[in-house]
Design a binder for these strands. Structure first.
Lengths: 198, 198
DNA sequence: ACGTTTCTTGACTCTCCCGTCCATAACGGT
DNA sequence: ACCGTTATGGACGGGAGAGTCAAGAAACGT
């Protein structure tokens, strides 16, 4: 009954996300998004409403994707819980080291630039962090049930510590730390976790 | 022989720093700086050259101040090295928790927003991080000489880990973590450091 | 006192970019 | 085939903000 869209909404969001990710919110122009996607500005505004709303959409998507990916890495049997934790920590370090453009994490970048002025972004960032912490806590608790990590430590506190280390790795990566340093941090962090005394 | 300045350059830098710190680089207008300092825009541009240069100046000052303050907290006798380390970690957590405006660290914020586009800022941020790491390493080495921390661990790697935790605490604080969580992280991080087996 | 030099002020220009608008195009139902 | 509806795209308006400029003010040396 009406003219259908010529573009894929999700694809536009992905392209826009990369632009905001690389350039930041303020430095990315809607015209850039239009040019990169091949859309006219009218279509862009018609479909997403505005710069702020567009960013919120892709920020939401990004947060959901991060939590989802982390969940897939960390959920599983108690038996492999420690292996998954170790793999995840090393993966974050490797990914940060591989990010030669030092884009960092859109979560951190977006939050740093917008959280103070945009309640929605701030809330979303907070919820994401909390979700990541919970995933870590669940996995660490599994490690404890399986005897890989000392059972006499609060898994929630260990999870918060690991999360801080992971966020710290990203922060240091953005600040230009050497890939080797990042990998060392991951390794040392895992090494100092209290193992079960068998 | 000529008209002297009516304002104190350092004071202007301090005020401008707070503005950039709270609002970010892009969102802070030179007019805001002029209004907050009581200066006209002409004086501002005459004294500092432009927005970018002004930011670089105060960013440099901030970095130097952070390194200086950390140095004063961490340098000293081997005997008290561990106490200083512990105090420092707890202090960072407490300071982050007390930052109810979630301004975070100007170092992280500035680096996130500008490092990609401003080589000077990126280099300065990197140098600052490296300086902090070295201070931590020296103190941890002192702890090891004094028998407070296991001597069979590379102090450089422990320093990198502690630094990551500290940066992570700030990142989580900005993301809205509860003060209690931040303090827990500090405490847990210190608890998992390998103590000497006496 | 006078001139020189530098500082001060705020109005002005110029650029940039968000968001809008409108003429046109494409589709589906009837 | 026609018409209503929605998408398209580019031109346009408007506002905001970075940086400039020129006229006046204040100090200091002579």
């Amino acid at each position: 009954m009406a003219r259908p869209r010529k573009f894929d909404e999700q694809q536009v969001l992905d392209i826009a996300r990369d632009l905001f990710w690389s350039g930041g919110f303020a430095a990315t122009r809607m015209e850039d998004v239009a040019a990169a996607t091949g859309l006219g500005k009218g279509s862009l505004y018609g479909a997403f409403g505005g710069k702020q709303e567009l960013f919120r959409r892709l920020f939401d998507d990004y947060c959901a994707a991060v939590v989802d990916a982390t969940g897939r890495q960390l959920r599983g049997d108690d038996k492999d819980a420690y292996a998954r934790l170790s793999a995840h920590v090393h993966l974050v370090a490797a990914a940060t080291a591989a990010d030669t453009a030092h884009r960092g994490c859109l979560l951190a970048k977006g939050a740093a630039e917008l959280a103070e002025h945009d309640e929605t972004v701030a809330k979303r960032a907070h919820a994401t962090i909390e979700a990541l912490r919970t995933l870590l806590e669940d996995d660490i608790a599994a490690c404890q049930r399986n005897g890989d990590i000392a059972a006499n430590v609060d898994p929630g506190k260990l999870a918060a510590l690991v999360l801080a280390v992971l966020r710290g790795i990203e922060a240091l990566g953005k600040a230009g730390a050497k890939p080797e340093t990042l990998k060392d941090i991951a390794q040392t962090a895992l090494a100092v976790l209290p193992r079960s005394v068998n």
